[in-house]
Design a protein around this nucleic acid. Structure first.
Lengths: 125, 125
DNA sequence: CGGAATCCCTCCCGATACTG
DNA sequence: CAGTATCGGGAGGGATTCCG
């Protein structure tokens, strides 16, 4: 039998918690979840809001989030077709943390950029 | 002049905050920072602790973190060579958030896995 | 011990075209 | 409008070898 109750080990690549982290680490997942923070959005709205994402990656990301129970996908049988995506309770619980990351990125952007300049100056010296 | 105070837009791929998020989103960066939470660690200690990371990726990740001002690299001129890595103040400020992610991954692992089973069952039906 | 450099291959992702 | 299918380039990342 495979190990199980050995304290979820993020550092073990076979541990599920590592896989969860991998999804969070996905470039687009974070942006999609944050975009859905304000409420349900249509596919096209997401595509328009998130700069640089291809339709393929957006679909793939949404499927992954849906599979993990973070978003729901609702098809409205109309013409033209309409599909809404919305955060689940689980998704919203993650949203809190991701919003924290967004805030951190914004708040410390200047420090990070300053550090980069310093580092690059040294490297070229 | 380039724009500046226009509210950093995470969704714009050219915005620096997006680049910061990309680094956070890096698979190994998160694990390295979390590993350094307990205090300074040698290169070899990091390599041994983080399952699945190659020496190349570990070095590359550490360079990136150092460049962004999240960790410091200290060389002790001894034989054999000894190099310590340690979180900076900036790194520790991020650590708080990452620890939150780790906790989330652990706490909601079961829910995510359950959601996956449900999704996969539907998909194959 | 802690890297740097090289080779090489996978698979991520974007662009395009087609379907319901 | 909201996808699926397919193809191809390129970067990411592993294994190996050599250096200080």
């Amino acid at each position: 039998m495979e190990s199980k109750e050995v304290t979820p080990d993020l550092y073990n690549r076979r541990c599920g918690s590592r896989q969860v982290l991998d999804r969070i680490g996905d470039r687009w997942s974070v942006l999609v979840v944050l975009t859905l923070a304000a409420g349900p959005k249509r596919y096209g709205e997401l595509a328009g809001r998130i700069d640089g994402v291809s339709q393929k990656m957006l679909t793939q990301t949404l499927r992954g989030l849906e599979r993990d129970g973070l978003v729901t996908r609702t098809v409205h049988a109309a013409v033209p077709l309409r599909v809404d995506y919305e955060l689940t309770g689980l998704g919203r619980s993650l949203l809190t943390l991701l919003a924290g990351l967004e805030a951190w990125a914004t708040d410390h952007l200047a420090e990070v950029e300053a550090a980069r300049l310093r580092y690059d100056a040294r490297a070229s010296a």
